[in-house]
């Protein structure tokens, strides 16, 4: 199932409803749906924030089988490899902590696979999360 969403944070409610409806139809538990929603939002928001002048919609696809596979396609955006390891400070005391950078850190910890491709202005991110459901 695939749908296009306007490149704006106001799309997040519709994006949640789209993916939630499909995962609920497959009886996926909260423990799967939560990280899928979180990774999808973080990736979508990255595409919005890093491409403020781009007006194309963002294509989001989701497929549920033995794993949940989510893809996000960004046409016209800059290259941004979400699989690259970045230094994120999660151990420092409060006074040294700085907001930012946690989104990709969380994705990389919560999903089972994460891939990124970029060619001719087209960026595509695909991540998977094991569904635990052998019957779908």
């Amino acid at each position: 199932m695939q749908r296009e969403f306007p490149r704006h944070l106001n799309s997040l409610a519709g994006l949640y409803e789209f993916t939630e409806e499909i995962m609920k139809a497959h009886d996926l538990p909260d423990g799967i749906r939560f990280p899928v929603h979180l990774a999808t939002e973080e990736l979508f928001v990255n595409m919005v924030h890093y491409n403020p002048t781009v007006t194309t919609d963002i294509e989001v696809g989701i497929d549920v089988a033995e794993q949940v596979t989510v893809s996000l396609v960004d046409n016209g955006g800059v290259e941004f490899d979400v699989t690259a390891k970045r230094e994120v400070d999660v151990d420092s005391p409060l006074e040294e902590r700085k907001p930012g950078g946690l989104g990709l850190h969380l994705i990389q910890n919560l999903v089972d696979s994460l891939e990124y491709q970029y060619q001719d202005g087209r960026g595509e991110v695909i991540f998977t999360k094991k569904s635990g459901n052998k019957d779908v």
Binding site: H37, L38, V45, L94, E95, P99, G100, L102, G103
Partner: peptide, 19 residues
């Protein structure tokens, strides 16, 4: 039910200010 990194940023900012 749910929080993403954007919400974490607000919690951190508030905690730093109150500290």
């Amino acid at each position: 039910e749910y929080i993403s990194s954007a919400g974490l940023g607000i919690l951190l900012k508030t905690q730093k200010r109150l500290a």
